[in-house]
Design a binder for these strands. Sequence first.
DNA 1: GAGTATACATAGCATCGTTATGGAATGAGC
DNA 2: GCTCATTCCATAACGATGCTATGTATACTC
Lengths: 188, 188
Amino acid sequence: MLARREPVTLRSLVAGTGASTMAVYTHFGGMPGLWSAVRQEGFGRLAARLSAVERTDDPVRDLMALGAAYAKNALDFPDLYRAMFDAAADLEDADAADSTFAQLVECAVRAREQGRFDRDVQPLDVATRQWLFGHGVVSLVLTGVLPAASLDAHVPPMAEALFVSAGDSLETARASVRDGWATFSSAR
Amino acid sequence: MLARREPVTLRSLVAGTGASTMAVYTHFGGMPGLWSAVRQEGFGRLAARLSAVERTDDPVRDLMALGAAYAKNALDFPDLYRAMFDAAADLEDADAADSTFAQLVECAVRAREQGRFDRDVQPLDVATRQWLFGHGVVSLVLTGVLPAASLDAHVPPMAEALFVSAGDSLETARASVRDGWATFSSAR
DNA sequence: GAGTATACATAGCATCGTTATGGAATGAGC
DNA sequence: GCTCATTCCATAACGATGCTATGTATACTC
């Protein structure tokens, strides 16, 4: 686990393909363009995972299920996740990221409309904070600073605290977090 | 702000010094050793900043003040922060990181002893979760994904939610967070 | 003062991303 | 069907990278 990564070099990429280094330049314009394409692929897979999350009549559960899908996607494609967030992304990459983040905001809006959150809380803030600590724990796990078990140990309690602070009751928040996070633990 | 970083190369380092590239090998053993020394320096500065935080009789305020010092240190030395957490750290680097993290745990222990947190909460968990979302927002700000104002916008509410979930009352948590975070905003 | 060890400058090596150049394949126009 | 233009990419080379080998000072020991 977390094997030592050998560097991704242009020549090592084209080594087994029979192609030469020039193919990368005709199709991607160079290594930065290739990395940008990798990030696009990463955000594309993430968007597909989030879109595949079932939407129920419990928006807080859906919010947690989206977080679970986010974490699971990061563990399934760790190198892709690092490529997406290690370097400063380009503007076009940011667009792809925004379209995935919008799915989180949408659930937060729905939660406020159903009265689960206070009227004066901004759904954008709730979504940002959930993404914020989700990224924190995921990136620390992927760099090997924290063990993988930290996800199960810290994400549900943090999410519950966040949703309660947004106005949800402790009981409903706990139940929704449990149901939503179950989609992570069950799928490994 | 967030200027395009020119890569840190061995030859560019020794260019202005009049020394040759071999000096790096006698003193650091190569570029990985040099980066390890940079991380040691970074953790040393962080530990000094945290140690300089005034400890009061309000441990929750101190917890938030440590978080403020952590964020301020990251903004003051952004390249150092990236060097510390971008790459997977060595084991000796992890030791230096643990010694700074211990200061957070100590405050959490004190908060539980004073009855601010429930008896069944683990101080290590509270400290970990605070560091966890702190690292999330700081790293996203440093990579340019989120604006710098996100720190003021999200860290205090997240910390308040965390402390309340640990057992602190909403009023005392809010006051302690405000007092502790003031050490960040006032010092820029 | 002789002998030894440390420190580092010079030069060179393999490899990196990138560019220049030329040739083969493809398609359009008549 | 022939010609021309364009696209695509293999070959080769360039500058720069981290690193190693070698030799030569300097400093320290006895």
